[in-house]
C-alpha cells in the first residue's frame, strides 16, 4: 500500500477513535450527573423527613470534567472533591426560637431548584412565630429566585421580618435590585434581634 494512503487511513482511524472517545466521555458525564441528581433527591427527601444521616458518612463521588486545550487535546480532569461540581444541591433550613421570635438559619444554596423549599421554610417560620429573622450568613449561593422569596415575605410581613447577611455579595445583590430600603439587612443575629425588638 502507498505510504500516503496508509497514513491517511490511519489518520481517519485516529479521528474516528477520538470522536468516539469524546462522545463516550459525555455519556459518562451524563451518568455521573444523573447519579448526583438522584443522590441529591435522596438527600433532600431525607432532610425533609428529618431522618438520621447514615448517608453523610459516604463521601461524594468525584465528578469528571472535560477540558480541551488550545492544541485540541481533550482530557478528563478529575475535579477535587472539596469543590465538587455536583456537590450537594441541598438547602437545609432550621428554626431556632429566640425571645423576639424565631431565627431561620438557611444553609446550602438557594437557586431555582431549592427556592420552593426556601419559600416553604419561610412560610413555616411565620406560622410558628410572629417575627422571623432569616440568617443567610451560611448560605453559599443566593440568586434572584431566593431574593424573590425574601421580597414576598417582606411584602407580606413588613416590619416583622429581617435578614442577616454578613457576606458582601448578598449586599451587592440587594443593592443591584434596589432592595436596601425594602428589605432590612443587618450583619449579625444579635443586631437583627435588636432591630426586630425596636420595630
Amino acid at each position: 500500500m502507498e505510504p500516503a494512503t496508509r497514513y491517511a487511513g490511519l489518520l481517519s482511524q485516529v479521528h474516528r477513535t477520538r470522536r468516539r472517545y469524546v462522545s463516550l466521555c459525555y455519556q459518562f458525564q451524563e451518568v455521573r450527573f444523573t447519579f448526583a441528581r438522584l443522590r441529591n433527591d435522596l438527600r433532600r427527601t431525607r432532610l425533609a423527613c428529618d431522618l438520621a444521616a447514615p448517608y453523610a458518612a459516604v463521601p461524594d463521588p468525584p465528578i469528571y470534567a472535560f477540558t480541551r486545550t488550545a492544541a485540541g487535546v481533550v482530557s478528563i480532569v478529575r475535579r477535587p472533591r472539596i469543590t465538587g461540581g455536583a456537590g450537594p444541591a441541598f438547602l437545609h433550613c432550621r428554626t431556632e426560637p429566640v425571645p423576639e421570635g424565631c431565627v431561620l438559619c438557611a444553609e446550602g444554596e438557594v437557586d431555582v431548584a431549592t427556592a420552593p423549599l426556601f419559600a416553604n421554610a419561610v412560610a413555616a417560620a411565620f406560622r410558628e412565630s410572629r417575627r422571623v429573622i432569616v440568617d443567610l450568613s451560611r448560605l453559599g449561593y443566593l440568586d434572584g429566585a431566593g431574593v424573590h422569596v425574601l421580597e414576598d415575605a417582606a411584602q407580606a410581613h413588613g416590619g416583622r421580618f429581617v435578614v442577616v447577611g454578613s457576606r458582601p455579595e448578598i449586599h451587592r445583590l440587594f443593592d443591584i435590585l434596589g432592595l436596601t430600603n425594602v428589605l432590612p439587612v443587618v450583619a449579625t443575629v444579635d443586631a437583627a434581634r435588636a432591630y426586630i425588638r425596636d420595630q
Binding site: F33, A36, R37, N40, D41, I63, A65, R79, T83, G84, G85, A86, G87, A89, E109, D111, V112, A113, T114, Y141
Partner: peptide, 14 residues
C-alpha cells in the same frame, strides 16, 4: 431541569 442547571452552575464556578 433546575437540578441539572445547578450542577452546571457549580461546574462553571469551579
Amino acid at each position: 431541569r433546575p437540578e441539572s442547571l445547578g450542577i452546571a452552575r457549580r461546574q462553571v464556578r469551579d
